[in-house]
Computed example of a mutant assay.
Amino acid sequence: MHIDLTGKTAIVTGSTGGIGFAIAKGLADSGASVVINGRQQEAVDHSISQLREQVANADVRGVAADLGTAEGCDAMLAAKPRADILVNNVGVFGPQDFFETPDEEWQRFFDVNVMSGVRLSRAYSGGMVEQGWGRIIFISSESALNIPADMIHYGVTKTAYLSLSRGLAKRLAGTGVTVNAVLPGPTLSEGVQDMLSDQQQEGQSIEDVAREFVMAERPSSIIQRAASVEEVANMVVYTASQQASATSGAALRVDGGVVDSIA
């Protein structure tokens, strides 16, 4: 299968590192014109340089904007008024006990993890419908189904993305615009590597540390390891392609089998 996204413009939110950057790279590898996003201009510029080094002749631009605010989403829309592919990846996470999570933290998680996708999907879907083709992809999580007891607020936002993606897919039925959610499981991103680094013993690879973490915290994992960011990106690139035109309203799991369900 050869995925060719030449002529398509893709916006990947929260893409200066981790899964987001891997998605941007995968889309650029497939010929798309890619828009990198992060809150800080320095981080955006650095990621653009990295992507150009890794993908020959990459067509990549950047927009520095805090998409957890309405003003940031407006800034993105002003800089890039149209898109063929929108990957709603930006998000925050972190463990905090339910009884110690104040209202303002719930609000912050909801603004970044949910409202960014609501606002941008509402803004860009109209142009997609007009041209009869588009892809909207929400990066959810296996935590949408396996709500973590130590970060319930995060799980709630990722479950919200499942409802949002399914409902919007129905709303855009028959338009040529597909809407899907992708659900990564434990993934060895830079953030996870940083989180696990204090558990790393001398001579032990970070992959082995991640494997131990997965087996301790997600023992239902079938692959029994953390996924790579590239493995998650591969699913997103396929979902953005013409080849995935019959897939819409789906929750596509890249969770290594963590969710113990046949559906």
Rank of each mutant, 00 (worst) to 15 (best):
residue 2 H to G: 00
residue 4 D to C: 12
residue 7 G to L: 08
residue 15 S to K: 09
residue 17 G to C: 09
residue 21 F to Y: 14
residue 22 A to D: 00
residue 30 S to F: 12
residue 31 G to W: 00
residue 34 V to N: 06
residue 35 V to F: 03
residue 38 G to C: 00
residue 43 A to Q: 14
residue 43 A to F: 11
residue 62 G to R: 04
residue 67 L to A: 04
residue 69 T to P: 10
residue 72 G to L: 06
residue 72 G to V: 04
residue 73 C to P: 07
residue 77 L to S: 13
residue 80 K to V: 13
residue 92 V to I: 02
residue 98 F to R: 02
residue 99 F to H: 03
residue 102 P to Y: 11
residue 107 Q to A: 07
residue 109 F to I: 06
residue 110 F to D: 12
residue 110 F to Y: 10
residue 111 D to S: 08
residue 111 D to H: 01
residue 113 N to K: 04
residue 116 S to T: 04
residue 117 G to P: 05
residue 119 R to A: 06
residue 122 R to T: 15
residue 124 Y to S: 10
residue 126 G to K: 10
residue 140 S to P: 04
residue 147 I to T: 05
residue 153 H to Q: 10
residue 161 Y to M: 13
residue 169 A to G: 07
residue 171 R to V: 14
residue 171 R to G: 13
residue 172 L to E: 14
residue 177 V to R: 06
residue 178 T to F: 10
residue 178 T to P: 08
residue 181 A to D: 02
residue 181 A to N: 08
residue 183 L to H: 01
residue 187 T to D: 10
residue 190 E to A: 15
residue 194 D to E: 15
residue 195 M to I: 14
residue 196 L to V: 13
residue 205 S to D: 13
residue 210 A to V: 04
residue 211 R to W: 08
residue 211 R to G: 09
residue 232 V to R: 01
residue 238 Y to H: 00
residue 248 S to R: 06
residue 249 G to D: 00
residue 251 A to G: 10
residue 260 D to R: 15
